[in-house]
Amino acid sequence: MRLSFEDAFSSAFEAARGFRWTEYAPFFWILATQWIFLALSTQLHTGWAMSIVAPLARLAGGEAHLHYPGFFGYLSILLGWLESFLYAIPGAVLIPLALLRLYARTDRALSLGAGAASRLAGAFLPTLVSGLAGIGAIWGWQRYASPVVTSSIRGAVTGSLGGLLGWLAITLGSYVILTLLLYVPVAAVQARTNPIRAFAYGIRFGLRSWPLTLTFAILFGIPAILVQFMIERQGTLLLARLRPELVTVLLGLYAAVTSMATYFTYAAAARLYRFARGDE
């Protein structure tokens, strides 16, 4: 079945219209963890908060940044690592759980009981692998490819516009990688599958629907991109002129809009996948 932009938009529209707390809840747990971490970051003057955040910073290789106010300049990087961990490891359970709850609208048996548990267990490995692969690919993109992309864009377009376009290219590049792997958890929670098949189906569907998925993923991600832009491009202003702690508010907002965008993107992707493959 050939997919059109109309199909993609109707899936996205339905996802946006059909928000349900129970389906979103697994993403909220990830968000809540991020918020708790950010709240701890504002309490580093206390021993207990420092003894939780410092080992995490050490793990991420950022012990040297545990100083005021420089820590708030580094916080977005540290939160990025935490976000990657949360979406990859606990996310390997929570994302399939959210998808199962979404599919349970049409199949009540999936929301409870042994059927749901076995699908969740089956989805864990492919989701985990796709999550880790996504982190690796984005890290590689940002570390190795982005300097080349940025410098070539800056070579073509000078001034602040060049800088802005370079930044946008790097950000959108990450979206491209994520949308390719987006369908692995969706395929993994389907009935009558196994981890290898789920992974292969997910990647294949990701490639097939790639421009459509990228479009609605970016649409849902616009608020997150805007907040990220503000943090990355105006961070120095916040640190030098205003209160450094304001960074945590912006990062909390970023985590919230990213969480919502991820939920809506998965909800739209699940609908599009079902629409394309029919009820299994």
């Binding site: 003057h45 021993g47 908060a49 420092m50 003894s51 939780i52 410092a54 080992p55 545990l66 005021y68």
Partner: peptide
């Protein structure tokens, strides 16, 4: 582990507190 962490955490927190007030 948490208690061991708290020991160095208290010192690190004291440094952070001092840096914040200095800032």
């Amino acid at each position: 582990l948490l208690l061991v962490g708290c020991g160095s955490g208290a010192e690190q927190a004291a440094l952070y507190r001092a840096e914040k007030l200095l800032y």
